[in-house]
Nucleic acid binder design. Structure first.
Lengths: 348, 348
DNA sequence: CTGTTAGCGCCTTCAA
DNA sequence: TTGAAGGCGCTAACAG
């Protein structure tokens, strides 16, 4: 059927082991036969069976990725960047999605382990014990987490965004353009990264000496998913009653900011003249929108890239030594992007 | 190290083969020993090694997916829907991305084959020979393509959206609200699905007896990727000179429509009063935007679902018989979503 | 019903 | 520098 090392050996009138060695550039093989075998393999269209290779304990050049769904644009960018750098180094990334169910995380880890992945990138579920993850980390299996810092109660190699800093920057910017009565709007469900943004915002407001109020919008908690239409309705209702109290709004993400702007627009409240709005994430729509949105940009490609480089290093090192050393923890800084929604300065 | 069937056999004082059979519910095993072995396996935390299983020729419960990047929201929805239904049936989907390079498609297929996937879902690259894909289809390997209809010169099991119909619906709607001078705006790079939209639109315009003009915008051809800022500039320039000639614009997708609306807004041209705008895809931003966008909605979840069901059937059938039968070809209909950007009717 | 015996395709000792 | 042999964990005959 398929051409294997045995097929090649028979034709080359040598043994299977020699073929195997030649193909892997084993130094013990003479340049001559190596070349001969390689040519033959090429001609016959030989493709190493990675299952067999993995079975005997070698690397599979496969990395398991477990992440939340693709509904958040920023995650997609991270995933894409990771996959691309992995692919360029000859790794295949096998991706499994976990819409934030703690139990599913364990199951997916097991499933991927059964396929003998060389390492893992994991965006941990918000809650749960992380039983499997913890076990792997303890046995020193190559793992890198995204945003594990703070939501896991044990150390890992981690690449995170500094959400606290992000929240701070949002408010500092609003304050810098002269706004003094600021609301921070976010959904009710609890989530570490949102909490961080809020904390950072609170501190910045305190430092700047501006009024600051936290507004939680109940978006219908179908899991962590925001129900878009409902969110819009709630926002409009809120602004109808309370808009006059504020001259600026910071939102936990750009979609919320879009909805907020739409609601304000409906109510005839001009943005940014009366109320300035800033979002978070820098999704593409915030640049395409009729009124472009100021926001906080995540270095998402870089996060994907750094995560892969870290993981690759761990995988290689595992093969050489079992050196125990410190966990690698990278925390990247977000950046302010100023657009129309905070564009004009109003003097009060 | 890890617990295997041998480990269990030793403890259960039986043979490895018996354990293997018991675990797989082989009817030849007595209920007693089966239960005993299963309990033991559970206690020991046994996890079958899927590589070994795959090596002997059995199913791996792994499906390979090759698709374009995650930058297009509709694709993400399809992927997510597919992955979820696969997961619920015990399959792992391993996803590889191909930003439309014909050569890469072949490479990725090979890589996934080396991991012994049970089947493939492929969103074929726009151009190229599709050498590997063709070979697999010929040897009757379980494969389902997305939008392969029209862009492949050979038959496959396929799930497509009817883009022609979509283009038609766009124009029919604009005509139905009384518009008579319509432009179809799309980027310069050629692509089967865009061509289809345009053809459908053209026919609809002809049938409705309205003026119809094709406008291609040069968005800088970094591959197939639209350069957003450039696209916006070009659109604004175009409208500045030509807006007066039209009372409606149809765009090949929603991001373009967003940009178009922003450009029109900048120029002080009211949407939909002077110019109505309709997009394509129904991305979330089209609903969140300050001015919500009328568009054509793809049944993306359904496409993912149908693709998986079709593929699963092929995989199962392969195991039973080598029955040769017709290719399964599903063509789904898009739907009109009316929002503000075509909301008000203007009499002329 | 259960045990025995071959492999699947590859890598890795150990000899020669 | 190459060959021979064993085994990774599992499934699939073939016996008993």
């Amino acid at each position: 059927m398929a051409v294997t090392t045995v097929t090649i050996a028979e034709i080359a009138k040598t043994t299977q082991a020699t073929v195997s060695r030649a193909l892997r550039d084993d130094p013990s093989i003479s340049p001559k036969t190596r070349q001969r075998i390689k040519r033959l393999a090429e001609e016959l269209g030989y493709r190493p069976n990675l299952l067999a290779r993995g079975l005997v304990g070698g690397d599979t050049y496969t990395i398991g990725m477990i992440t939340t769904g693709l509904d958040v644009e920023v995650h997609s960018v991270k995933i894409t960047a990771f996959e691309e750098s992995a692919r360029n180094k000859g790794y295949l990334t096998i991706t499994a999605f976990n819409p934030n169910e703690p139990g599913l995380e364990d199951k997916l880890i097991i499933r991927l382990l059964q396929r003998s992945v060389d390492g893992f990138v994991i965006y941990p579920a918000e809650h749960g014990e992380h039983k499997e993850l913890r076990a792997l980390v303890e046995k020193n299996f190559p793992i890198v987490t995204f945003n594990g810092d703070g939501r896991l109660d044990f150390q890992t190699n981690d690449v995170s965004l500094d959400y606290y800093e992000g929240g701070k920057i949002q408010i500092e910017h609003l304050s810098a353009i002269g706004r003094k009565r600021i609301a921070y709007i976010y959904p009710v469900f609890s989530c570490y990264t949102i909490d961080q943004r809020v904390s950072g915002a609170k501190e910045a407001a305190h430092n700047a000496g501006v009024d600051f109020e936290l507004i939680q919008i109940d978006t219908g908690n179908s899991g962590q998913r925001v129900q878009t239409e409902l969110a819009y309705e709630k926002l409009r209702e809120f602004f109808r009653k309370n808009a006059s109290r504020f001259d600026a709004i910071a939102c936990h993400n750009d979609l919320f900011a879009l909805s907020a702007i739409r609601a304000l627009h409906q109510l005839g409240i001009k943005v940014p003249d009366y109320i300035a709005v800033i979002g978070f994430d820098n999704i593409s729509a915030s640049e395409f929108s009729m009124l472009t949105i100021s926001t906080i940009s995540q270095p998402a490609e870089q996060m994907g890239l750094v995560a892969f480089q870290t993981l690759e290093a761990l995988v290689k090192e595992k093969n050489s030594r079992e050196s125990e050393h410190e966990f690698i923890r990278v925390k990247l800084k977000p950046e302010l992007v100023v657009r129309e929604s905070t564009g004009r300065i109003v003097d009060c």
